[in-house]
Design a protein around this nucleic acid. Structure first.
Lengths: 142, 142
DNA sequence: GTTGACCTTAGAGTAGACTCTAAGCTTATA
DNA sequence: TATAAGCTTAGAGTCTACTCTAAGGTCAAC
């Protein structure tokens, strides 16, 4: 049985974050001492590590919440439910990458166009491009 | 001279956003009617479009603020200052892309490993991988 | 002269994931 | 026994970039 700071040390999550996750239903301590201290057993620890792993991959707390409900009763859920969550996340990631690559492209072109030297910015080609507005739109509404 | 909704129509920013930008010092109306209505002249409009362009590229409002101070007095600033901001943004974008590509990679591997079918999730390989924690860390602290 | 569209302000709300604070117990160590 | 480290809670603050609301003034058209 670990205390919160020990679980923190073990998982690399902060004690604050563990309490935050508890408030949001992701993690809980199956026991409390008389003084109210949280005590985590092996199952709790595995759950916390599951959360940590999923978070590190990039899943949102909402996604993790869904994955956890599958986890506690795997026989009531299908592989498809799991792949749906994963695919959805991958779609999001791909969309974000595309957006960032567009920014990357624009920024690279701007950088190539400018001398970058100690010259006064009076005729800076980056500034000129921004003035002219002749740059692609990289950002989506998100 | 345009009223705020006209500037909104012209730039594609909402009137709300224009007021928000004003509050943060990015845009202002050089004139006000007696009733307090904002009126934008050509210089104001060009500034608003500059902001819009920079935002679309992906610059933060803080970045844009710096670019604007260079813009109003180009002789006091060098090309290097402009490329520094741009390069810094590009570095950020590249870092974010790397992080997302790592997530993309992990998610793709997870998806490949799972049948994704109507089978019960009891032996779902995605769940197993999350349990085992044997996935790369994709997320940085940011 | 009234309707309706448009403008004003300060300030609150949204999203996501923490992060910290204050005030006060509890526990371990010297 | 005193001190420090660690725990508890509710709740506020952080960050970015908006987005919206309420309550009210203004303006053009019919």
């Amino acid at each position: 049985m670990l205390k919160i700071s020990e679980l923190a040390a073990k998982t690399g999550l902060s004690a604050h974050t563990i309490r935050f996750y508890e408030k949001h239903g992701l993690i809980s301590a199956s026991e409390r001492s008389e003084a109210g201290y949280r005590y985590y057993n092996d199952a709790d620890i595995r759950r916390a590590e599951f959360v940590k792993t999923a978070r590190n991959i990039g899943f949102s707390l909402e996604d993790i919440s869904q994955l956890l409900s599958i986890r506690v009763d795997k026989t009531s859920h299908s592989c498809q439910e799991v792949t749906d969550i994963t695919q959805h996340k991958l779609d999001e990631v791909n969309a974000k990458i595309a957006e960032l690559e567009s920014m990357q492209h624009t920024l690279s072109i701007l950088l190539e166009s400018c001398c970058g030297g100690p010259e006064k910015a009076t005729h800076c080609s980056i500034m000129e491009a921004l003035e002219a507005g002749d740059v692609k739109k990289s950002r989506s509404a998100a």
